[in-house]
Amino acid sequence: MKIIVNIDVMMAKRKISAGELAERIGITPANLSILKNGKAKAIRFSTLMALCRELRCQPGDLLAFQDDPEEES
């Protein structure tokens, strides 16, 4: 059971580099990398809002819920 982060998919669709996106949304490239690699434990609404604004998408386009029944047992 986990949240999948699809930022790289949207970045590819909008043809935007990680460095440029990090600069536009005001976070460090290292933090964007943590977010992209699914290592983040939480995301602030302000960051999500900035991502949606810059990538012209909805939060649901960036985040997806994946149910993994085996993980729970």
Binding site: I34, A42, I43
Partner: peptide, 8 residues
């Protein structure tokens, strides 16, 4: 702290 550090 680790939770806070990984809140982006």
């Amino acid at each position: 702290k680790s939770e806070l550090d990984l809140t982006i």
